[in-house]
Simulated scan of single mutants.
Amino acid sequence: MPDALVELLGVAHSYRTRGGAVPALGPLDLRVDPGEFVVVVGPSGSGKSTFLRVVTGFERPSEGEVRLLGRPPVPGRDVGIVFQQPRLFPWRTVAGNVDTALKWAGVPRADRPQRTLELLGQVGLAELGPRRTWEISGGQQQRVAIARALAARPRLLLMDEPFAALDALTRERLQEDVRSLTAGGSQGVVFVTHSVDEAVFLASRIVVLTDRPGRIALDLPVPLPREGVSADELRGSAEYAALRGEVAAAVRSTVLEPS
């Protein structure tokens, strides 16, 4: 078995408030291996974003241990991150935003223009390098954010509901792009969403979290083909519909009844 990209061992996290500790996550155990596309799905308040923060090291768990590439996580190291909002530098061009990420990644200055073109080509923006970020659409901005996250060739890509603010058509197109970009490689992806449809379309494995505190209610391999099948064929298949129903039922069952 290959070395894990991410391991969570008995991880739990609570937030301190004036009224006492508020449990947000766990305890849970989870392993993500190279090449996996793990989608974490659950209702609002299930600890999905907390999960990402402890994986990246932005939060230290109250209990348990997190290992990222075999060691404790350090914020900003070893992973690429795509947030809900693109968080681009508006004073830089599209290409300038990617160039900045390459600079932070230690890529030599002479190599950065070609690598920038390659990254923008990967996300379908090869012709838009000279444009300012405020001159392009929201979906294109998120493509720039993905290119920037890939700049350091991270072994692990973390995505925190990156398409939540986009219209339905743009969202579907970006789902297809991300699915193609990550198919067949050794890079691992952890993608957080509240959309069951998005989870089934993207994932090689789905993890459903319960209502707060988030625990694993379902850990489900997704045997759908990731290459050689069109998006429409995949979404229209009986297997897709069955998986979508199973995951939706698991998400509904995790929501606690009002006390």
Rank of each mutant, 00 (worst) to 15 (best):
P27M: 05
G236I: 11
S195G: 06
P34A: 10
L181K: 06
L69A: 09
V123F: 12
A241E: 13
L88N: 08
V54I: 14
R92C: 04
R171P: 04
R155Q: 11
V55G: 11
I216P: 02
T210K: 10
I206W: 09
R112V: 04
R244H: 13
G26Q: 12
P225W: 12
M159C: 01
V32K: 03
P27S: 07
A217F: 02
E227Q: 15
I81C: 05
V40I: 15
V22M: 10
A101G: 11
L88K: 08
M159V: 02
D3M: 13
F201E: 01
K48G: 02
T93E: 06
L157D: 02
P108E: 04
M159I: 05
S180K: 14
H194W: 13
A241V: 06
R31Y: 00
A145G: 12
S14W: 11
L5N: 10
T182R: 01
P43N: 13
V54A: 07
A231C: 09
P225F: 07
V251H: 03
V39W: 04
L181T: 06
V255N: 08
E176T: 15
G214E: 07
A217P: 02
L220H: 08
Q141P: 06
V6L: 14
P130R: 11
P23W: 01
A249V: 09
E36Q: 14
K48M: 05
A126Q: 13
V208A: 09
R77I: 05
G228D: 15
Q142Y: 06
A250Y: 10
T17A: 12
N97M: 05
P225S: 08
T116V: 14
P113W: 12
F37N: 06
V247A: 13
L68P: 02
F51V: 03
R112C: 07
T182C: 07
T210E: 10
L117I: 11
S137L: 11
R109A: 15
R92D: 01
P61G: 04
A151S: 12
L166H: 07
V107T: 05
D232S: 13
R171G: 03
T210F: 13
I146W: 03
L68H: 01
P162I: 02
L117C: 14
G245Q: 14
V98G: 02
V123T: 09
Q84C: 13
F191V: 00
V247M: 07
R112N: 06
L28E: 00
P162W: 01
P23S: 09
T133V: 15
P221R: 00
A147V: 01
T193Q: 03
A101S: 12
T56E: 03
V107Q: 01
R226H: 15
S253T: 14
S62Y: 05
V74F: 08
V196M: 03
G76Y: 14
W134L: 13
